[in-house]
């Protein structure tokens, strides 16, 4: 039983790590600021959730797992707030969204 649980948790955590790497590749690869934010939100949602789910299977029903749940809730409540505030600040400072035909990156004043 415990071996099965171990394997499931390792698979979940590795998947989470893969999604984190994919999100990071997206942040590096995407053109323009707003498109990069979409890639970063993959890390914050799927990557973080899968890793924390895997850790939850490891820890079982203890105080540590309650703290992991609080950590998960913290990520889920605070990461959209932080990304919205960043996007709003960039928008109000006039960062232009990237257009497919323009080719260059969306930099403006900074």
């Amino acid at each position: 039983m415990s071996a099965v649980l171990d394997i499931v948790s390792i698979v979940l955590m590795t998947l989470g790590g893969v999604f984190c790497v994919i999100g990071a590749i997206g942040v590096l690869r995407m053109p323009g600021f707003y498109t990069r934010m979409h890639a970063a939100s993959v890390i914050d949602t799927l990557g973080a959730s899968l890793i924390i789910l895997g850790l939850l299977l490891q820890s079982g029903f203890t105080l540590a797992s309650a703290k992991l749940v609080i950590l998960w809730l913290l990520i889920f409540f605070c990461s959209p707030t932080a990304s919205h505030s960043l996007a709003n600040a960039a928008y109000s400072r006039g960062v232009k969204p990237w257009e497919p035909d323009q080719g260059a990156s969306s930099s403006s004043k900074n």
């Binding site: 939100s41 990461s79 709003n88």
Partner: peptide, 15 residues
């Protein structure tokens, strides 16, 4: 609503 939009990858509420 706005946080749900931001939380879903692929859409971000800007303003």
């Amino acid at each position: 609503y706005a946080n749900s939009i931001t939380l879903t990858p692929g859409t971000i509420s800007v303003a």
